[in-house]
Design a protein around this nucleic acid. Structure first.
Lengths: 204, 204, 204, 204
DNA sequence: CATGAATGAGTCTTCATTCAT
DNA sequence: AATGAATGAAGACTCATTCAT
């Protein structure tokens, strides 16, 4: 009965990852204990080690799973708009939506990941891959707009894409820290306005 | 001679903080050991505890010291330009300069701080205070420009200020992680162009 | 069909013992895991526990089986020589042969057994019984030679027998550790010469 | 005060080694816990790790210390006899004496070492070095006797030396296991007689 | 009968903190 | 004031044994 077993195994892995996520969000990776994760997932410590080779393996898998999917998600959700102007607007909306829905765990997980990236190159590379993925997608959108003449000819697609991702991550940090004074609605409006001003082909 | 003693004590504290900073930058707060800090500062573990109550006390003081000074620094460095356009340009330049000079430690320290903010409210509040300080200064500059009619009337000073700080911190993360593909020169140019487009009172 | 079942059970037990022997030879008793034995025997851990009460039970049975058979083996193999001189020579040859054929497992198993004997009296007694068995057989041979006048009258049969077994086991240790410099051929020659010199009834 | 400190350190190390020896003798290396050693040495676990890098380091040092000195000891104690015949006799006596004095720990430690040698090459090499050292010394004595004509010309010095060491270690095993029926006095007499018979230059 | 997932006590090791000197 | 040896409470990980399927 490999089918059932495999399904069961996957379910368990997911349950452990979810437990780990909660624990990591609460106290960070270093302070979280394997016992914490075990208790939260309703399993014994020993059982955990049947599904993951080490505490660090849990973290790595979690990062891969949670952060690795962001670029694909973005692409999938915004792709069916065919107008570059709309696609850019869609990206910003998706980002804002994500913050509202998953708030504040995405940001906190990002913090945990960055903290680990300091020592763990695998995590660092995961973060950079995610960055590259996001930048790459947005850059593509921008370039299509430039080529079609909808965006200003001398816009720096790659740099703007990088800036938008940096902005998004920086904002996520503060948002997940419940920074008072951040007004998501006005933020979105201003970002869109700024991007429009910059990309507008008719402005100098 | 209480004066000398007090001076001596301050010197020692500073030395310890500097040692701690280096160590934290290298391996993060949790993984850094008190021994590491002691060795780096040239003191014994025992001596450390005469100057700071605990490992966490060292970290808290360090954060207070390092993160608290950023807004003042910004203000001091950019203040003597009196034209709002120049002041904004100056802010961006100072930021870029800071990255070039202190790279990559600023970002790494920020990461360490964010990681600790997860558990430690004092650190979190320090980060938010720093954010507020930076936003506040930039917001002031923007408002002066708006009032004087040099910037567009309907620009959202507070939100733009927040966005710039978020962008700066987000960028700092990736910059301190040695993300390839980040070109500081083009980044600076694009940021300035974007801000100019957005603030230009003559554009719609 | 109790008969078949019983046979089946015995076969399984033997298979497990053989797997265990290999595993113990490789990493010793303490470091060997029940999983190791299960995998090597092609059974599941659960199945193992249907045939043996515990890991220690496997080891005890193995020792009983492997160490218990040595004296019988010796007796059986050397018995059909009827001349005491020849019998003694035969013993040495059998010993050397065993080393060549089963090398280096005999020695390694002996080491494992001695290690366990430290804590486990059953194993210790097994080793002493084996010793007694071997000594007893050789002593018998020697005594027949003395009685028949072929060996010197004042030879100490019991002590010589003990010495030969000690020598054999001591040698086995080093041989199984692949001690360089041990030349089996010359060893055999020298042992035989020494014993001959000592037993020769015509020498003082 | 480096002098006092160094002395203190050495004393502590010796105390730990002695505690470890007792514990290892009692339950073998694998079953002995670091806690056992700490308790027996009157220190805390943490303190142990200031003097030794790991449990295995303790064991290795102990082996080096206890087994490594045997060859030198033998050499030193038997050297002042100048007659080869006497030197050989002296070797046997020293060995017997050692068994009587340190009984049964030498043998038990030897067992522990052999058990670990199965996995740990450093231990194995230590044992082989000890073997080589002992063989080498005895071989030297024998060769001097052969050269001077006091021993038979065709005696195989190297092999005889090896045999004597194997015999000694094999005997030590059984002696430390309190094998009944071993009579040290008669053993000694028989070994000496055998060696004499074999080495006697006047016998065929 | 067989399986192998689950358990959880036990192991080695680290490290913040204390305190005798 | 300074030192650094000592403490001991955790923490990650292992593995003999059990038991539901």
């Amino acid at each position: 009965m490999p089918k059932v077993t495999e399904t069961h195994k996957q379910r368990r892995r997911q349950a452990i990852l979810e437990a780990a996520e909660q624990v990591f969000l609460g106290k960070g990776y270093q302070l979280a204990t394997v016992d914490d994760i075990a208790i939260r997932s309703g399993l014994s410590v020993g059982a955990l080690y049947r599904y993951f080779a080490s505490k660090s393996d849990i973290m790595l898998t979690l990062m891969e799973d949670r952060l690795g999917r962001t670029p694909n998600l973005l692409e999938r959700l915004s792709a069916h708009a065919d107008d570059p102007w709309k696609q850019i607007g869609r990206c910003v909306e998706i980002f804002v939506l994500a913050l509202q829905v998953r708030h504040p765990s995405t940001g906190r997980l990002l913090i945990v990941a960055w903290g680990e990236a300091l020592q763990d190159n695998t995590v660092r590379e995961g973060l950079l891959r995610r960055f590259a993925g996001l930048v790459n997608y947005i850059q593509g959108v921008l370039e299509r707009g430039i080529t079609s003449g909808q965006f200003r000819r001398d816009a720096d697609a790659k740099v703007l894409a990088s800036l938008l991702v940096c902005l998004a991550d920086g904002f996520t940090l503060y948002w997940s820290a419940n920074t008072p004074s951040l007004d998501l609605r006005r933020i979105r409006a201003t970002v869109i306005t700024m991007v429009r001003c910059y990309l507008n082909p008719e402005l100098p």
